[in-house]
């Protein structure tokens, strides 16, 4: 895609905006539609968009596969770890009241933030890893055949 000048410029402008928007969706998910799943998919879409326009090598320099693969597992660990943390504080598994015993609804806010972060990390990791896996194979259909 070396010759698509407009596409390349617009992509550079949009990718950072999309990532910012996904963070907004993530952290504003308690107040408006959104949350970890949507934010993860949108953030992955930003990297996929970059990869489609600038090629797989360039996006993998920004976001190397080894980080992506570790993110997949890290998100589940954050989520499950939140549960174990509340267990070590003497409450039930995933009982967020543990994080602020004197102010239960604040504890819930902390807990929801933590698990949504776990969801964000896993979903971003998985979606980008799947894209890398598909795009990393040589295509069988040549560009002219579409």
């Amino acid at each position: 895609m070396q010759h698509h000048l407009i596409l390349r410029v617009i992509t550079k402008l949009l990718v950072s905006t999309i990532i910012l928007f996904s963070l907004y969706v993530q952290f504003h998910g308690d107040f408006s539609p959104g949350g970890g799943f949507q934010a993860g998919v949108i953030m992955a879409a930003a990297f996929i968009f970059y990869g489609l326009v600038f090629g797989l090598e360039n996006v993998q320099r920004v976001f190397p596969p080894w980080i992506v693969h570790r993110m997949m597992a890290l998100g589940v660990m954050i989520y499950a770890g939140t549960g174990f943390f509340s267990m070590f504080l003497g409450y039930d598994y995933l009982d967020y009241n543990a994080f602020a015993p004197h102010h239960p609804s604040h504890g819930q806010h902390y807990g929801i933030l933590a698990v949504e972060l776990g969801v964000l990390v896993t979903v971003t990791g998985v979606m980008v890893a799947i894209y890398y896996a598909f795009a990393g194979r040589p295509p069988q259909v040549s560009d002219e055949d579409w």
Binding site: G35, F37, G40, V41, V123, V126, M127, I130, A133, F134
Partner: peptide
Amino acid sequence: LTAIVVGIATTSLGLALIV
């Protein structure tokens, strides 16, 4: 909401099998 995201993950597994 969660089913949609799980759905895309399993769909991509099916697509990988097709490849």
